[in-house]
């Protein structure tokens, strides 16, 4: 089983994830239409790029926008969740040892204590996000079972990873469950809302270009997100 999960399934999940996201990005760009979207994307590349980067950058900063400032609870929950969810899988020592052995390549690694902290933050963030979905009427009306499924799929690798990391129960079993959950997440990403991993950047860049090229960017007065 372990050989299967770290062999063919590892490769399949990696290919589906990376190629899938690349295809989503290409399809997104190909589906942009200057006249229907009413944004002259090609005509003003410089101001477009500047506003695209600003639009992404400010929203990546905790409390960097009016939206984040207005909703501190959401900001905390969101960043607790996303910082760990992005950094831990990439820079965990164990992941990189595995990568080194598998393909002879690894990335910078983070201190194990930091990784533990960030993983707990992901779990705490998930709990806060779920509480918010239940408590606020304006979020409840939007929430569907699918939204909870996405949260479960996203957090499962972190919970199972912690169980294995602390050797609770059968280490080997939980390690396999962890790898399975991680690979499942990678495989589902391009086909679900998890595609926002790439489409967040696309969509933010698009609106940034819209404001830069068409809605006042050339007036030189900036735009406070």
């Amino acid at each position: 089983m372990y050989e299967m999960l770290t062999g063919p399934f590892f490769w399949i999940s990696m290919l589906v994830f990376w190629i899938g996201l690349l295809v989503r990005a290409i399809l997104y760009i190909r589906g942009l239409d200057w006249q229907l979207d009413r944004v002259a994307y090609r005509a003003h590349p410089k101001i477009g790029a500047k506003f695209a980067l600003r639009s992404i950058g400010f929203w990546l900063l905790p409390f960097g926008t009016q939206g984040w400032k207005k909703q501190p609870y959401m900001t905390v929950a969101f960043f607790l969740f996303h910082v760990g969810a992005v950094l831990v899988p990439l820079f965990l020592i164990a992941h990189n040892i595995f990568l080194e052995n598998k393909i002879g390549f690894s990335l910078f690694t983070m201190d194990q204590g930091v990784a533990d902290f960030l993983t707990w933050a992901v779990i705490l963030g998930t709990i806060l996000l779920i509480l918010r979905r239940i408590a606020l009427p304006e979020v409840r009306i939007l929430t569907t079972a699918y939204d909870y499924m996405i949260l479960v799929i996203s957090v499962a690798p972190f919970i199972t990873g912690l169980i294995a990391r602390y050797h609770i129960g059968d280490y080997h079993f939980w390690l396999m469950v962890h790898i399975f959950c991680g690979e499942l997440l990678l495989i589902l990403t391009p086909f679900t809302k998890l595609s926002h991993i790439i489409l967040f950047f696309m969509s933010r860049a698009q609106l940034g270009m819209d404001y830069g090229i068409k809605r006042g960017g050339m007036k030189g007065e900036g735009m406070a997100w």
């Binding site: 979020v139 939007l142 696309m202 969509s203």
Partner: peptide, 11 residues
Amino acid sequence: TWLEICAHCGM
């Protein structure tokens, strides 16, 4: 894409 990736966060 807007309709698809809306996270239903209510912000």
